[in-house]
Amino acid sequence: MNTKIKLRPVAIFVAFSVAIALSSCSKKPDEIATAPSPAMSATPSTVANTPAASPSAMSSMAPQAAPTLSANASTLGVKPSNETTCPSNAPVKGKVTKKRGNIYHVAKEPDFARVKPEICFKDTATAEKAGFRAPRQ
């Protein structure tokens, strides 16, 4: 009798997990993309059953959209020459980040060559006028 009592909660848990897994499979791709984050879920098993929780699903997700520049920055700056290079008449690199904000980089910085700018400016004053700031040391 004691083993039946222990098995019943496990069976209920398994049935609940299967129901959640099956309900997420019936959603259209648009619904999955706009569905709430699995991290908001109450149980770890529901997170494990969602497609976004697996590493293979994470690698197949589309990359994030490029950060957007303000209209002021777009008019004051120019586009980069390539992924890491600015034109010679605009050597200051402008980088837009969600976490640190809009930052400009100058050639005297140690990692300047590796910075991938979204916009380039002719000088630091123009970058500051466009809403960018120097990086914190």
Rank of each mutant, 00 (worst) to 15 (best):
R8C: 02
S26N: 06
L69V: 14
R133K: 15
S45K: 07
A35Y: 00
S37L: 10
P36V: 14
P9Q: 02
V115Y: 05
T43Q: 13
A73W: 10
K98P: 00
A107N: 01
S45M: 05
K129R: 12
T68N: 13
E128I: 04
K95S: 10
I32C: 07
A42F: 11
K79G: 13
S56T: 02
S54Q: 12
N89M: 06
N72C: 11
S54H: 14
P117L: 06
C120M: 11
P91I: 07
K95V: 14
T75R: 10
E128D: 06
M40Y: 02
P44W: 15
V78Y: 07
S23P: 01
A19I: 11
N49Y: 00
S17A: 07
K116Q: 14
Q64M: 06
F16P: 00
S23A: 14
G77D: 05
V106F: 01
A39K: 15
P44V: 06
N102E: 00
A35F: 03
K129Q: 15
D30F: 08
N89H: 10
R100N: 15
H105N: 11
K99G: 03
P55A: 10
V78L: 12
S81D: 09
A42T: 08
S23T: 03
A134D: 00
V78H: 01
A19G: 13
